[in-house]
Design a binder for these strands. Sequence first.
DNA 1: ATACAGATCGGT
DNA 2: CCGATCTGTATA
Length: 212
Amino acid sequence: MKKLERSFYNRTAIEVAKGLLGKYLVHRVNGRELSGKIVETEAYMGPDDKAAHSCSNRRTKRTEVMFGPPGYAYVYLIYGMYSCMNIVASEVESPQAVLIRALEPVKGLEDMAKARYHKSLADCTKKELLGLTNGPGKLCRAMGITNRDSGEDLCRNRIFLLEGGMEPEFEMVTTTRINIDYAEEAIHFPYRFYINGNRYVSVRDRNYPFSG
DNA sequence: ATACAGATCGGT
DNA sequence: CCGATCTGTATA
């Protein structure tokens, strides 16, 4: 499988968010390789998007990476305990990013189970297996990605993305984003995308898909 | 120096 | 629904 190159990320966050569905996120750590298929994403469009950390071009040490070139990781800590991973999109000085909201685990499930539940894969219930990576905080925990990984170049070989190869067809659902109640008109922007029917799409889906 | 909110999660 | 838990950020 081929690694996604810089040009893939040099598009709007909406395009990148859609394009990332079905691709593979890979983390090489401790001599092992963890990976999962991306099944759910959200686009954060920057200056005019009140849900984005980079709204109004708000530029701080934390958000700085989003103002740089595309294809880098923006990882932040939320509620003091979970990391969320984003992929910087668009060109320099256009602070857009794509939040990875859910993965279907592919490789390194044993390590993921350890990281999430402190027990081996064999001891996990069916529910726990489905809960391994079906949320932005959960997948970072499972994949061993933390805010210290913010700024990582995804075109190198520690954390990177792979093209799917011969992907089976899937239907993409477009809907609204999760947990951005404060974002005024941006609450209604259709910036969330997921693979229809995939069992690893985050369960806290209180939104109604757009028809069309 | 201090205050406070948060692109979440798991348990009730 | 609620609380955990702590960093980044704003304000002074």
